[in-house]
């Protein structure tokens, strides 16, 4: 969907989309794999959401430029208008915590402490990144991640109260 949104403004080729994603979301966001972008674009094209054509370049190989179709524009509008559900109920750590006794591990405090250290170190790294990131979309992404981690830490405390 982010690719559809980027194509809504103007047609682009795969590498341009990769650069745009990096510029908008900054260093915290995993740099998109160019191969993955091409695979996604092909999938979107099969689904009729984008169309492509080869553009002849004089000094370089031809490049394939993608543009949004009417169906793509509609899919994008639907995506934007729909509230997003986070998958926070499917939490891998919580599964471990809940099921660890079945796996023969009874030390839930050790599990919680390890997870807490990991969250704290993540916040520490994000905080360092935030301090060198200009205000804007990229910084908001980092701040959001830090707030989620803060909530995860609060929730760890709840788990500790109930289960340890």
């Amino acid at each position: 969907m982010p690719l559809l949104a980027l194509l809504a403004k103007e047609p682009a080729h795969g590498y341009e989309l990769k650069i745009l994603l990096e510029q908008i979301f900054g260093e915290a966001y995993p740099s998109p794999n160019i191969g993955q972008i091409y695979v996604t674009l092909q999938r979107l094209e099969r689904g009729g959401l984008v169309a492509s054509q080869d553009v002849v370049q004089q000094t370089r190989p031809n490049k394939r430029v993608y543009e949004l179709t009417d169906a793509g524009r509609e899919a994008l509008a639907t995506w934007v208008d729909r509230p997003s559900h986070g998958p926070r109920i499917r939490d891998d750590f919580f599964m471990k915590l809940a099921l660890s006794p079945l796996a023969g591990s009874t030390d839930r405090l050790a599990l919680i402490n390890r997870q807490r250290r990991d969250y704290l170190n993540q916040i520490r790294s994000l905080s360092a990144l935030a301090s060198v990131t200009e205000p804007g979309i990229a910084r908001l992404l980092i701040e959001g991640a830090m707030l989620h981690l803060q909530a995860d830490l609060d929730w760890l405390e709840r788990c500790q109260e109930e289960l340890v």
Partner: peptide, 10 residues
């Protein structure tokens, strides 16, 4: 503090 490497797989 460690900055997440840019090319880390998602």
């Amino acid at each position: 503090p460690r900055r997440p490497p840019a090319a880390r797989p998602s």
